[in-house]
Design a protein around this nucleic acid. Structure first.
Lengths: 338, 338
DNA sequence: CTGTTAGCGCGTTCAG
DNA sequence: CTGAACGCGCTAACAG
């Protein structure tokens, strides 16, 4: 049973002064007798008084709270982005509310509604892989509440965005495979619905083209990023009459699953088949052989997103949306070079 | 620039009715003409109306929001606990706000204050390793806002708690080492301030005692859980005149760091030295050799914590605190048995 | 320096 | 079935 929490009126009554004076004392307003202020402060402390942020937000119609919606947070990626964003936001005096859509479009819509209902001042979003309709985010935009997309961005919305150069990262990864002598390079791609997947696929294709290696349709498989499927497709690739001599995976979990399957079949890595992942998940340094991968500046994604949001928040009128594309870096480990 | 968000008054004026009627229509009150209700609902949809949760919370003095404070969320553990808790809480109609103290006592206090200011209905907490003073949580308790501790629990507070049987888990782990022939078993323990660490240490000690193996003081090192220190201490242990033939680590990151150091020195695992971790981090299955570890029912910790909190919330008067101790399970992998 | 008043958006009496 | 009035806790504008 929750008891009555003390309010400024309680303090005012006990001290025999008006609630305005209490309010002023508490907020550090200059025009208060220093003795009165001290009495207020002392009593507040004694009563464990905490200002009711709800009432203040209702009054000022700003909550100084930013909502973050992410599709998952079991892998290291999103937690690390969130921490990066939180650093910047906390410094600017904003709180952070994290919502987890669990890759479910319906949950994402529910999350967005809840954040709207609780009147967040801004939104940081990486959408689910099934999100095709972005109306639940457009509503924020229409109300003048800034939205910044990161990692998984909506290409149709005119808002600020932070991504990495997926195309370039993929190009360099495949180039590395080619330069280390690989010719039949498979690509386990992500779902078409995600721009990231498409950009990585394009990087893969252009690298092959650039080095005049014909693309084999049978070596490219798009899938939904569930590990069970990854398992099936890797086995499928290995069973081909002409199996690949390298695999470029859309992300590290996929690459690590592939690594397990390949080792399980007694093939040697990288001798028989080389593997490259994407993101530089801490696990990629742990597996054996170490996984070559395309590193993303994860914390920086969060920090930059927060900064773009802050800039929108500071702008009087609707500010021009900005797009930041962060560089990637190829981390070469033993899964590609003996 | 944030625009004016539509309120029930806006809807009422456009429809030429009173805001009470709009309120009733929106909340599904029975006594509303169905035609009027439909007109309200239509206009609300058209205006993207979202009820202002702030105002409602201020009025009802309940936010239907639960705060969760965790010390970190880069390892898999806390995210998974949070997801478990969220499932249960969402089903009961509660939202979740996650705060990340980053193992900083000051941040934890700030988080607690912010959650109090935003009037959460309840609190789920795992405190930092430096938290000695729990006054910032006692305030909630005193106000009748239920608090549930999980994983890292405050032994001095009379609130509901969810932990695993650390003692038993540690005992079984060390017993396993003894039964596979180890005699000089080192223990890299966590800080004394954490009950978990102490219980695991006790389990270690009692297992040795039970099998009449004398405890060597030089083989037990408590540390602050930073990986750099782990590295130093593992090297120190290996440099002893009589190095250990087994290592029981307080958690999996520590064990994995140890594994790297040991392999780096050209020692064989488990032949020269066996390793056991704690928690069954996904990474423990990835490293080579696979890490033997004590698994915790992670999602269940979250679910149970949420259920205990819900029970407190439902209780009219202050409900009796409950303590749930979940079982662990030893997962044997190649780091202990060839 | 301090008190009074108004109102943020809403649900809920209490009258019609 | 509907409307008017009140108050949740707080800050800001206005008067002393």
């Amino acid at each position: 049973m929750q008891q009555h929490l003390p309010t400024i009126v309680d303090i005012a009554q006990q001290l025999g002064i008006s609630k305005s004076t209490v309010s002023r004392a508490l907020t550090g307003h200059p025009n208060v007798n220093s003795k009165t202020r001290q009495r207020v402060l002392d009593l507040a402390e004694q009563l464990d008084y905490q200002r009711n942020q709800l009432a203040i937000s209702l009054l000022t119609s700003q909550t100084r709270t930013i909502g973050i919606i992410v599709p998952e947070f079991l892998s290291f990626f999103f937690p690390k982005v969130i921490i990066g964003a939180q650093e910047v936001l906390a410094e600017a005096g904003y709180n952070v509310v994290i919502c987890h859509s669990n890759e479910s479009y319906e949950t994402e819509v529910t999350n967005a509604r809840a954040l709207m209902a609780s009147r967040v001042d801004g939104l940081l979003v990486s959408h689910t892989k099934d999100t095709r309709n972005f109306d639940h985010f457009r509503i924020f935009q229409r109300k003048g509440i800034p939205v910044v997309f990161f990692n998984r961005v909506c290409e149709d919305m005119s808002v600020s965005k932070v991504t990495v150069d997926d195309y370039e990262g993929a190009f360099r990864a495949v180039e590395h495979l080619i330069q280390t002598g690989r010719r039949r390079i498979a690509h386990l791609a992500g779902p078409d619905s995600l721009p990231n997947s498409r950009h990585r696929l394009n990087g893969y294709r252009d690298a092959l083209r650039h080095y005049q290696i014909p693309e084999e349709a049978e070596l490219v498989i798009s899938y939904d990023l569930t590990l069970e499927k990854a398992n099936i497709y890797v086995n499928h690739l290995l069973n081909l009459p002409q199996p690949p001599d390298a695999l470029f995976a859309v992300n590290d979990p996929t690459a690590i699953e592939a690594l397990k399957v390949i080792k399980g079949r007694g093939l040697r890595i990288p001798d028989d088949i080389a593997i490259v992942g994407f993101s530089n998940d801490p696990a990629s340094a742990l597996v054996e052989p170490g996984l070559t991968t395309v590193a993303q500046p994860v914390s920086e994604i969060g920090q930059q997103s927060a900064r773009l949001l802050l800039r929108q928040l500071a702008a009087e009128a609707a500010a021009e949306p900005e797009t930041v594309i962060l560089p990637t870096e190829l981390i070469v480990r033993s899964s590609t070079v003996g």
